[in-house]
């Protein structure tokens, strides 16, 4: 492999990592801060992609961004409503919304499961025209992804230090304490999920436009991929300030994509992506648990041995 191939590989991983990093930042807010595992992520990602594509195809490339984010807000609001006001378990609420979104997404795409944007003006083609002749020529994907990620991280770093942001973090930490502080945890959960899903929608919108097509499966498994990225990022930059941890989340997304792209290079079949992400999530979550259980396991083994010996003697 020559240097150009390697840098090409890194750039691909960087682009994809940054775009999916927006979903990782969404989970950073909902999973790490609000302590809600939002399983509507897959559907919401596709929703953002579909809405963004439809709006772009109808001739409004810039409008596609707020439209996709707005669709995400609505989806997050419904998920929040189900779990805070209707007594539906938060995991189940996510799954229900995810299932419902499948139909919504097909409807949004005009009863089709595939939309093509080959000739559509998107934010990427606009940026490409803008960058023509500058040193960044041809890097429109990277530039847009970087801008989006930087804005979202900046937003999170500022927002999570506001009183509302603190209340959202406290809701994931100790809802009793939130109530004692005269704040309604229903409100904080709702605001948190609306914001996080708007990032997921944005992520889907950008991915669809960067690959110039959207199909109904574009978001499938996204929640696991993003969770894997989040947990990888946690391992590197899991402590410290919010901004550092948010950067860690995006770094995790990049590392995940890099490893994946390299694996593809070594002839790993593309369909293994989801298996890899599942295994990473299992290792990242089960690992610390099993490590904690290890002394007990050792105790059990040694206990069995000594007791067995003693028992044997007594029998004899």
């Amino acid at each position: 492999m020559n240097a150009a191939a390697i840098s090409g590989l890194v750039f691909t991983a960087l682009e994809l990592g940054l775009i999916s990093g927006l979903t990782v930042l969404a989970l950073f807010l909902s999973y790490s801060m609000l302590n809600v595992c939002d399983l509507s992520t897959d559907g919401c990602f596709t929703l953002g992609a579909a809405v963004g594509a439809v709006v772009a195809i109808s001739g409004h490339p810039y409008l596609s961004i707020p439209a996709a984010m707005g669709a995400g807000v609505v989806s997050g609001f419904v998920t929040a409503l189900l779990q805070t006001r209707m007594g539906i378990n938060s995991l189940l609420a996510g799954i229900i919304v995810n299932t419902g979104l499948y139909s919504v997404n097909i409807a949004v795409m005009g009863n089709s499961s595939l939309l093509n944007m080959n000739k559509t003006e998107t934010v990427f083609t606009k940026m490409k025209a803008l960058l023509d002749g500058t040193p960044l020529d041809g890097q429109s994907k990277l530039v847009i992804a970087l801008i989006a990620v930087a804005l979202v991280i900046l937003f999170l770093a500022l927002f999570l230090r506001t009183r509302l942001g603190l209340a959202i973090r406290a809701t994931g930490n100790n809802p009793d304490m939130v109530r004692s502080s005269s704040i309604n945890p229903v409100m904080t959960t709702t605001v948190g999920l609306c914001i996080s899903n708007s990032f997921t929608g944005l992520s889907g919108c950008l991915l669809a436009q960067s690959q110039k097509s959207v199909n109904i499966d574009i978001g499938t498994g996204m929640v696991t991929v993003a969770l894997a990225s989040l947990l990888i990022g946690n391992a590197f930059l899991g402590k410290g300030k919010i901004a550092v941890r948010a950067i860690g989340a995006v770094l995790g997304a990049f590392i995940f994509r890099l490893v994946y792209t390299i694996a593809l290079r070594f002839n790993m079949p593309a369909f293994m992506l989801k298996m890899v992400s599942s295994v990473i999530v299992i290792i990242a979550i089960a690992g610390p648990y099993l490590k904690e259980q290890f002394p007990l396991l050792r105790r059990r083994l040694t206990h069995g041995r000594t007791e067995g010996r003693r028992g044997g003697r007594a029998d004899a």
């Binding site: 009183r163 603190l166 973090r169 994931g172 100790n174 004692s180």
Partner: peptide, 24 residues
């Protein structure tokens, strides 16, 4: 039960005190 363990002392106090607006 009365405090959020993952947040700092001053962050806990801020929420309890409720000074300022939501975005302060």
């Amino acid at each position: 039960r009365g405090t959020a363990p993952g947040m700092s002392i001053e962050e806990n106090l801020t929420l309890a005190a409720g000074y300022g607006g939501w975005l302060s």
